[in-house]
């Protein structure tokens, strides 16, 4: 009888477990576990806490508590890992949980508001902790429970459902932490990529109102789009009137990149500046003409020096040799 009952509970827990593992936030996981304990085990109150970076237990999920009780509990200072460990002695161990009778501990908890039942085995100030372990067997949190409906002390059998829940919760929390770590790494990678990208399209302020962008290496369409954005933002920020794009260092260009280049020229014109393209090599000249790219609108100069000369002229200045 007892056993079939346990089986039913374990089946239910398994389906709750699936839901828990699918959950994506730590808070919801803890809350679901706390509620599952109250709904499916003898204990009428439960708190799920996780060990934070500062080595204290943060109470996150609450089951069977009124909002006032939850508030009260949140005000009690968090216990540290050391304090907890001092109490989690082997003599208290039942299965994987720790049952600490009230007369053997100095731990602080929420006082039971229930009348003390002389005949019950469980004392309202007893503690029962079910630890959450990571795969390396380090404690990452715990479920603490109180007020058993049957007033009984825990046994390995009565603890089983809660221990299953604790293990599931640990896996779920671990999953999320791993995901976060992966996302962090990914974010860092992206940031590095962005820096590289910016370094590879350096828009240089060579003179008042004149910018130079020396392009080096192959340009794909992602980089071409980045170039367009950098060029326009820089012109607008420096209020420059000419941008010289030097493509001496670009070996080849395909249609897509050529069309990006032309779009850049058009966009530069729309915001009120001019583009000069310098350093078009024979291969690129051939490609552009064969591709039918219309370059008549574009101001091109043989090399950077002549480009700068033109830019100075456009901004009403010129270079003279000093005798």
């Amino acid at each position: 009888m007892v056993i079939t009952n346990q089986l039913e509970i374990i089946k239910e827990l398994a389906s709750i477990g699936t839901a828990i593992i699918r959950e994506r936030t730590i808070n919801t996981i803890c809350q679901m576990v706390a509620e599952a304990v109250v709904d499916h085990t003898a204990f009428q109150r439960s708190v799920v806490s996780l060990l934070e970076k500062d080595n204290t237990f943060n109470r996150i999920g609450f089951g069977g508590l009124t909002p006032e009780q939850t508030q009260k509990l949140k005000k009690i200072p968090r216990s540290t890992a050391e304090e907890k460990e001092a109490n989690l002695r082997d003599e208290f161990l039942i299965s994987q949980s720790y049952y600490i009778p009230h007369d053997k501990t100095q731990l602080d908890g929420l006082k039971s508001e229930r009348e003390y039942d002389e005949t019950a085995e469980w004392h309202p100030d007893d503690f029962l902790f079910i630890p959450l372990y990571d795969p390396a067997k380090r404690m990452i949190g715990m479920i603490s429970v109180d007020d058993p409906r049957d007033g009984k002390r825990p046994t390995p059998i009565s603890l089983l459902p809660m221990e299953i829940l604790a293990n599931l919760a640990a896996v779920a929390v671990e999953n999320i932490n791993n995901l976060k770590k992966m996302e962090d790494t990914l974010r860092k990678l992206r940031e590095q990529q962005k820096v590289v990208m910016e370094l590879s399209t350096p828009v240089i302020d060579i003179w008042e109102k004149i910018l130079v962008l020396p392009l080096i290496g192959t340009v794909d369409s992602v980089r071409a789009q980045q170039i367009m954005e950098n060029v326009l933002l820089k012109i607008s920020a420096t209020e420059s009137s000419v941008i010289i794009i030097d493509i001496t260092g670009v070996p080849v260009i395909d249609t897509l990149v050529a069309s990006h280049l032309i779009k850049t020229v058009e966009a530069v014109r729309l915001i009120g500046a001019e583009t000069i393209i310098t350093g078009i090599n024979p291969e690129i000249a051939q490609t552009l003409v064969h591709l039918g790219v219309d370059l008549k609108e574009i101001n091109t100069k043989a090399n950077l020096a002549r480009g700068i000369e033109t830019a100075l002229k456009l901004t009403n200045r010129k270079v003279e040799e000093i005798q």
Partner: peptide
């Protein structure tokens, strides 16, 4: 003469396929 077009607006406009040929532009 158009003036003060924001970079983001200019980029979007040319990507859309419009370049407002024949219109003069100034930075501000």
């Amino acid at each position: 003469v158009l003036c003060g077009m924001q970079p983001a607006v200019a980029i979007t406009l040319v990507e859309l396929g419009l370049s407002l040929e024949g219109v003069h532009s100034a930075l501000n």
